[in-house]
Structure formats: structure tokens, C-alpha cells
Amino acid sequence: MSILYFFLYLLLVTVIGLLYMGVARKVTAHIQNRYGPPIYQPILDVLKLFGKRHTVTHGVMHSLGPVIAYTGIASTLLFLPLGNHTPLLHFKGDLFVVLYLLVVGPLGMALGAGESSNPNATIAMARALSLMLGYEIIFFMATLPVFYHYHTASIYKVIQAQGVFPHWGAIIFPISFLAALFALQGMMGEKPFEIAIAPHEIASGPMVEYGGKYLGLLQLWHAVGIIVETGLLVDIFFGPQNIIWFFIGTFIVFYVVILVNAVMPRFRIEQAVRFYWGIPLLLAILGILQVYIWR
């Protein structure tokens, strides 16, 4: 039974992710004063991509790249408790497991893109990894106070501990929440930090050589990625008690991210890294100091 439940769960999250992407395009369109595609457009795109007949690959690793990417993000999903119920019953997600699994996705895509020996892809991967040097540390330092406050390293316990409204992480640690938002913008690769996929500069970065079904898989990867990253933030800072609250939370956070994405220009890579070591780092440090004072 659990295997079927397992696939259904994955399918559900992927579809919701795609719908989120549709909403994102709709919202950006409306900001730009135009109607924008129907919400289910990404699902159509994915179906079209999987329908493509002749797609090109540059080698085994090139074709396996998206596969590993999707595996990575899917396994992170399974270790991330959505609201109060987690698919893998006996094992509650641990912060470090999730943080390290988050890296498997980009690593897989990086390997695939590298194999394509297209300079655009490799420059993109160099930028993505350097950016990670910026936002990953901020995200970790931002979430640390919450875990430290509740004396646990497992996300599931954090959710349970947060319970009713006044106990939300965001309320107790507003500064860290702000820093986490900055980090989330980078982690999602949205506009101000869309340096890796910058279509104008490096022809959509790593996906430059991917077409057809590979691009489809990568779209799925992106969709699940949205849910996982925003979900991680929501779990830590809002502790949704059940799955509905979880998805509402993720939608709100995603909505904020999209708003920022629609209006912001794009950083150069060293500006982005320098930016991250400026205000967000300061905020994160303040958050940690707050925990120390609080305790």
C-alpha cells in the first residue's frame, strides 16, 4: 500500500508545483498589464516536452543529469514533513539530511550540463555553485535559532513545538525570518538571483543543451523544488499543523517571492555574493544573538 501511496504523493506534489509555476506566470503577466497564459499552462508544456520525438543527448551523464536532479529533489521531498504527516513513517526529517539532500539536485543537473561541454552551461554551473556559497550559509544561520530554541535538530519536532499562532517561528524570530526570505530568493533562483538561468546572458544556463524529455524532467524538478524550498521555510518558521495550512503557507511565501521576481533586475554574480555577505549576513547574526539573549 505504501508504494502506491508513495507515487500518488509524489504526483500530487509535482502537479501542485506545476500549478504554482502557472500562477507565477499569470501573476507576472498581470503585473506587466497583460493576461498571461492559463494556470495549467506548465502542465501542457511538460506534456508537450515529453511528447517530443527526436531529442539530442551528449553522453550518458548528460542524459542521467536530469534523472539524478529529479531523484535528489524527490528524496528531499520525502524527508521533508509536509504539515504534520510525513510519507516515510518511522523517520522524521532532520535539518542536516534535508540541507545536504537539497544539494543532490543541483549537483545532478551540474554533472549533466557539464557533460554537454557547452561553455554557457559550465559558466552557469560555476555561477550557481558560487551563489550557493552566498545563500546557503544565510539560510542555515537563519534557521539555526529556531532549532536551537526548541532544542532539536529534527524539523518534525519543530513543527509540533510551534503549535498555535503566537508560537510561530516567524513571530519569535522575525529577524531570522527576514534573512531566511533573502536566502530563499537565492535558493529558488528567482529574479534578483536568477544568475544561473539568465536566458539573456547565457542562453538559459544549464538547460542550454537540454530539449524534449530532459527539459520535461527538469521542469518537474523545478516544480517539486518550489514546493520543497518554500515548504522548508514554512515548516521551520510557521509550523503548519496540517497539510492544507502547509500548502497555503507555501503559496503565500511563493507569492511573495514571485512579486519580488517580477519587478527586480538581475545581479552580477560577484555583486550577488557580496550582497549576501552584507545585510542578510548581518540579519542572520542578529537572529543568532537574539537567541543567545533570549535564552
Partner: peptide, 22 residues
Amino acid sequence: MTSRFDMERFGIIPMATPRQSD
């Protein structure tokens, strides 16, 4: 492409590389 005639509502968006476009 832009708000006046908005071809995106028909699901047509400009893509960077021939690999990804139809």
C-alpha cells in the same frame, strides 16, 4: 509579446536555444 497583444496567453513564449523550441 508584450501587454498590447500578449501572445503568451496562447502559451507561446520566446526560448533562448533551438534545443528547447518548436
